[in-house]
């Protein structure tokens, strides 16, 4: 396996591989987004209690789930980057952080816009909402730390350490609704039980989750490529690439 993986540890090959994968993710994102959003907004039935306000679920839940998935990915990359001193893994951390931050912001904002009509408040300091807000701060901390160093090797290491520190927040977010009394309800979709949502509402939700996941992939790959170009800008392969682009 190492023999097979080894070439991808080289920047040039990873750049090419990321470029090859990106269109596939994009091809999956666009139709699933359109189908999911139209289905969720116009075709799914209204909820028996919450009426049409429940349609916010179709961005709230995917954004929240994928914000956490992005963080898990970053944590794994940070771990690999720190232990094996793989700069590519550190670049992946830096590439994913802004995407995760935006997803977290979307989850928080849509949650507020949903909470106001249903709960009666934009914001409540309960364990779920607070831990999700901390996730946003951790994301912003990682981005700020990475940009604060002009030495990108140091920056990558610092950001990776912060990523690993923040990983404790993930189980807290996930189990906050189980461990404590919160205003936020429990999980609708869990791995081990039947989801507590009607099937005709669940299908568009799953499509939207898929769409957010593939879009996360597109953005991480795109930003990872930029990160590579930036950090390898004095290498021959980047120069060659720019020269070809300049001529074409």
């Amino acid at each position: 396996m190492w023999k097979w993986l080894h070439p991808y540890a080289k920047a040039e090959h990873s750049y090419a591989l990321a470029g090859k994968l990106m269109p596939w993710f994009l091809v999956l994102t666009i139709p699933s987004f359109i189908i999911g959003i139209v289905w969720g907004l116009a075709f799914a039935p209204a909820d028996y209690q919450q009426g049409d306000s429940f349609r916010i679920i179709y961005i709230h839940v995917p954004a929240a789930m994928m914000a956490m998935a992005a963080y898990s990915t970053m944590a794994i990359a940070a771990f690999i980057g720190l232990v094996w001193q793989l700069r590519l893994a550190e670049m992946a951390v830096a590439a994913a952080a802004p995407v995760g931050a935006i997803y977290t912001f979307i989850a928080l904002f849509t949650g507020a816009a949903w909470g106001k009509p249903m709960w009666g408040a934009w914001w409540v300091w309960d364990a779920r909402l607070t831990s999700e807000l901390i996730l946003l701060f951790v994301y912003m901390g990682i981005i700020a730390l990475y940009n604060a160093f002009s030495d990108k090797v140091l920056a990558g290491r610092a950001a990776s350490i912060l990523t690993l520190v923040g990983v404790i927040n993930l189980p807290i977010i996930h189990f906050s609704v189980v461990w404590w009394n919160t205003l936020h309800q429990g999980a609708t979709i869990t791995k081990f039980e039947q989801p507590s949502i009607a099937t005709e509402m669940l299908i568009p939700l799953l499509i939207m989750i898929f769409s957010f996941a593939t879009f996360l992939g597109v953005m991480i790959l795109y930003r990872f490529r930029s990160e590579l170009l930036q950090r390898e800008q004095h290498r021959a392969w980047v120069i060659k690439l720019v020269q070809i682009k300049g001529r074409g």
């Binding site: 209204a46 009426g51 935006i102 979307i106 904002f109 849509t110 879009f215």
Partner: peptide, 23 residues
């Protein structure tokens, strides 16, 4: 949106704008 137009469209609007900003 069954009387919830402000909240639903606000949520969807801000989300789309943030995604476009990211792109």
């Amino acid at each position: 949106m069954g009387g919830y137009s402000f909240y639903v469209w606000l949520a969807y609007g801000v989300s789309i704008v943030s995604v476009i900003a990211l792109i």
